[in-house]
């Protein structure tokens, strides 16, 4: 249990002297002589987490309503500007999901897409973050690389597909390259942005404490930029999926994007929705992973 109500805060055991100074000191609550009953605790937990519970409850209802609307629109094959005639119903998609989950080919599509994301995105992070840090710290590097980056940045990763096919000997490599490009620029730009926002007073404070260039970089610039670096990684991950799916649809033979496109060609409508949902779930999962990593790396950030 890690609910706020049950965690004992260290402030509770603070000496009175430390609190003597004015400040938002928490109101002293006398510790109860007997441990509170389960009912009291449950009630307290409920009171403290009411907002969260409310959001979760509304979220569940809203998702169920979405499924219901989808079900009704497809069952009655509504045609009202958009045509739901051929759109698969939620139940059909579920049936195709339970079949696909045992199908090694479907799992292979997913595994391959994940591998491409992993390689492309990791490369982008490994190149983009250090490059951004160095460009942020050394003016000359910034002056040399920034103009090139600005010219290449507005080109959508999908527009690179033909060029990528020419550049790389295998299809696999060109798809990973597209994924790399998609995530590289958001990561670079956000890292640079983070570097430009580093509070100069913190740099001065470090210098006054005897820090030299290397420590200032490692102990001030890098941690100060981390929140923006993680923004870049989150955005980069999103764009990586966009670029990957587009590249797979155009030039792939495997992958979840190819699966979705193939389902359309083969008139397997339920698989189209299945592919889409799989892409959504994978995208959500990867951004949750990055957010989790961010929390681990930046324990000082409460939000």
């Amino acid at each position: 249990m890690s609910s706020p109500a049950l965690v004992r805060h260290p402030e509770d055991s603070m000496p009175a002297t430390a609190l003597a100074e004015a400040g938002p000191a928490p109101a002293a609550i006398a510790p109860p002589t007997t441990p509170p009953s389960f009912g009291t605790l449950a009630l307290r937990w409920y009171r403290l987490n009411r907002a969260g519970l409310r959001a979760a409850a509304i979220g569940v209802v809203s998702l169920l309503a979405f499924l219901m609307v989808w079900h009704l629109l497809t069952t009655y094959r509504v045609v009202f500007f958009v045509r739901f005639t051929n759109v698969p119903s939620p139940l059909a998609v579920y049936a195709s999901f339970s079949k696909a989950i045992h199908d090694p080919k479907f799992l292979m599509h997913i595994a391959l897409s994940c591998r491409r994301i992993f390689i492309g995105f990791s490369l982008a992070a490994i190149v983009g973050v250090p490059l951004g840090l160095i460009m942020g710290r050394f003016k000359l590097v910034h002056e040399i690389i920034f103009p090139v980056a600005e010219v290449l940045r507005p080109i959508p990763a999908i527009a690179w597909v033909p060029m990528a096919i020419m550049l790389w000997p295998t299809n696999e490599q060109s798809i990973v390259f597209i994924t790399f490009l998609g995530s590289f620029f958001p990561i670079l730009v956000n890292t640079l942005h983070g570097m430009s926002l580093v509070d100069p007073v913190l740099v001065r404070a470090a210098q006054c404490l005897g820090a030299r260039e290397r420590s200032i970089f490692r102990d001030v610039y890098f941690p100060a930029s981390l929140p923006h670096i993680f923004t870049g990684l989150t955005v980069g991950m999103g764009v990586a999926w966009v670029s990957l799916i587009a590249a797979e649809m155009i030039s792939g033979q495997y992958g979840i994007g190819y699966f979705t496109w193939e389902a359309y060609s083969l008139v397997q409508y339920a698989d189209i929705a299945l592919g889409m949902i799989a892409i959504g779930v994978l995208g959500l999962g990867s951004s949750v992973l990055i957010r989790g990593a961010g929390k681990l790396v930046m324990p000082w950030r409460t939000t």
Binding site: R204, A206, C208, A224
Partner: peptide, 16 residues
């Protein structure tokens, strides 16, 4: 230099 310690108005503690 560390020979001259400085305290700033904006606190300037390292948040991390």
């Amino acid at each position: 230099s560390a020979e001259r310690g400085m305290v700033f108005q904006q606190y300037s503690l390292f948040p991390w």
